[in-house]
Computed example of a mutant assay.
Amino acid sequence: MKKVAILWSSPNTDGLTASAKDEIMRGLTDAGTEVEEIHLNIKKLEHCRACGNGWGTCNKTGACVIKDDFAEIYRTISEADGIVWISAVYWSDMTECFKAFFDRLRRCDAAHNQFLAEKRCVLVACAGGTGRGTLECLQQFERGLVHMGMRTYDRISVGRYNREYILPALYAAGKTYADRLENGFDMYY
């Protein structure tokens, strides 16, 4: 059985982002995938301090000097077969909570560990306003994943105006992602 980590961030536990997370998670579990849900907003996560000369020890050791929940989350996603990244969209970007985690992850993984290289991921951006910022948010996610050598399998934009047909599509996306993790991806890169 494959294992997928779902990282999501929104302070609203019953809003659009939570609904998107629930649907993709339901698709994954219905397909027989083990899922580990990580709600970043309830974790203790500090921002990168850019220690030392600006690069810190993370690029030499692959570990962050800050003692919070980062190391546990990093271990969980490193051990997963796949990762689903879901964020509410603020100012055309992922949440500040997600950025705090993502910046530290990129420093530890891209420069030293490369535990996440070649992992296939699904990206989901959820905007409750106009929805205009979802594409930029997905682009920011993907830029960071490229630095770490991960591969994006799907990019899904969710807005309040498309939620009625996108939420069921997220269920199907979860099932399809589970199948691809088990049976292989039909994509070249």
Rank of each mutant, 00 (worst) to 15 (best):
Ser78Asp: 08
Cys58Trp: 03
Phe70Gly: 01
Thr61Glu: 10
Asn59Ser: 15
Trp55Gln: 01
Gly62His: 00
Gly56Lys: 03
Cys58Ser: 08
Cys58Arg: 04
Arg49Ala: 05
Ala63Pro: 00
Ile83Val: 15
Thr76Asp: 01
Arg49Phe: 03
Trp55Ser: 02
Tyr74Val: 00
Thr61Gln: 12
Thr57Gly: 14
Lys60Gly: 00
Glu72Asn: 10
Gly82Thr: 14
Asp69His: 06
Val84Ser: 04
Ile77Val: 15
Glu72Cys: 07
Glu79Thr: 09
Lys67Pro: 05
Ser78Glu: 14
Asp69Trp: 04
Ile73Tyr: 01
Thr57Tyr: 08
Phe70Cys: 01
Glu79Ile: 09
Gly82Asp: 12
Ile83Pro: 08
Ile77Asp: 03
Ile83Phe: 06
Thr57Trp: 07
Lys60Leu: 10
Asn53Tyr: 07
Ser78Trp: 13
Asp69Gln: 06
Ile66Arg: 09
Asn53Ala: 14
Thr61Tyr: 06
Gly54Arg: 11
Glu72His: 08
Ala63Gln: 08
Gly62Leu: 00
Thr76Gly: 00
Ile83Lys: 06
Glu72Phe: 05
Cys58Leu: 08
Gly82Pro: 14
Gly62Cys: 00
Gly82Cys: 13
Gly56Glu: 05
Glu79Ser: 15
Arg75Ala: 15
Val84Phe: 04
Val65Pro: 12
Tyr74Leu: 02
Gly56Arg: 03
Arg75Cys: 11
Lys60Glu: 05
Gly54Ala: 14
